[in-house]
């Protein structure tokens, strides 16, 4: 009897595992299938080198670069803001604050991650953008800067929480050694604990980048919908994700060339995150060698 139920359980678990694998394979399959059809109409060279993205206009251009630059730009702004801030918070929580303070503040910080991103997008549009316009006169109503900053706020808990875990895992004996040598708390944190936790911190940063690249709602609301090949954060741009939303929700007929552009854009996004994850693994291994 026990054996039989054991078998059912095992089967159930296997089905669960199979389901996730199949889903991934299916998504990738659909993505590839539609992309192949897309590239029978548009050459890959044009896709990769054309400096304009206007598939919905009469004069069509299919250059992914403007969307790619939009994604990279907003991500850079978000990371430039969230990594220093998130790391400082993590170091403060781990090295300076008391146990009690940490046990109260960390869950509160993690709640930031539970705020729906549409709220963040709205927040960017009606609060951050007007505020920034007061400081930077030339800032447009939609911009990579304000979308990126708000995305940065959203990502802080990811950076903090994961880095804090990595710092927490550094054995106390290492800190003792540092203190015993006459290190200040600051020296202990930045010269001993942080380097010792570097592989975990790198993973946190890579994950934060992936999160920023994939983020859709904030950029769709606050960054504008104008594909533009620029690294200027003050003007409206469009990211890959925002474009996919725009077309999915619009009245573009299915199975048209315009419709397939979203699959080409999607596979670019996929390639980007895949590249990033591989880079993360590589970096982590490299640092491991150095520190073990």
């Amino acid at each position: 009897m026990a054996r039989k139920s054991e078998k059912y359980i095992e089967g159930g678990l296997f089905a669960g595992a199979l389901f996730t694998v199949l889903t991934t394979a299916l998504i990738l399959g659909v993505l590839l299938y539609e992309t192949v059809i897309f590239f029978s109409d548009v050459s890959i060279v044009e896709f990769l080198t054309d400096r304009q993205w206007t598939p919905l206009f009469d004069e069509k251009h299919f250059g992914i670069l403007p969307l790619l630059s939009g994604t990279i730009l907003t991500t850079l702004v978000a990371i430039a803001f969230s990594v220093p801030v998130g790391l400082v918070i993590a170091i403060y929580l781990n090295e300076y604050s008391g146990r009690r303070f940490r046990s109260i503040v960390k869950p509160m910080l993690e709640m930031l991650a539970a705020v729906p991103t549409v709220v963040y997008g709205f927040f960017a549009l009606v609060i951050i953008t007007p505020f920034l316009q007061g400081i930077i006169p030339g800032l447009a109503g939609f911009s990579a800067l304000s979308a990126g900053l708000v995305m940065g706020i959203m990502i802080i808990p990811y950076v903090t929480s994961l880095s804090e875990d990595a710092l927490f895992a550094v054995p106390y004996s290492l800190r003792e050694a540092a203190y015993g040598m006459g290190s200040t708390r600051f020296q202990t944190a930045f010269r001993v604990t942080l380097p010792a936790a570097s592989s975990g911190v790198i993973v946190a940063i890579i994950l934060a980048i992936s999160r920023a690249i994939g983020e859709t709602m904030i950029v769709a609301i606050a960054a504008g919908q104008q594909p533009r090949l620029t690294m200027n954060p003050l003007v409206p741009i469009e990211t890959i994700t925002a474009y996919i939303v725009q077309v999915s929700l619009g009245d573009v007929p299915h199975n048209s060339l315009e419709y397939r552009t979203i699959f080409a854009a999607g596979i670019t996004l996929f390639a980007l995150t895949f590249l990033l994850n591989s880079m993360g693994n590589w970096l982590r291994k490299k640092f491991r060698e150095k520190y073990d």
Binding site: P171, L174, A177, G180, M181, S183, T184, Y291
Partner: peptide, 20 residues
């Protein structure tokens, strides 16, 4: 305290070199 610990060094129970 930092100056004190430079004058009064300490070796611990378990070897704890830095990961350097």
């Amino acid at each position: 305290v930092e100056q004190l610990r430079k004058r009064v060094g300490m070796v611990f129970q378990k070897p704890n070199p830095f990961p350097k």
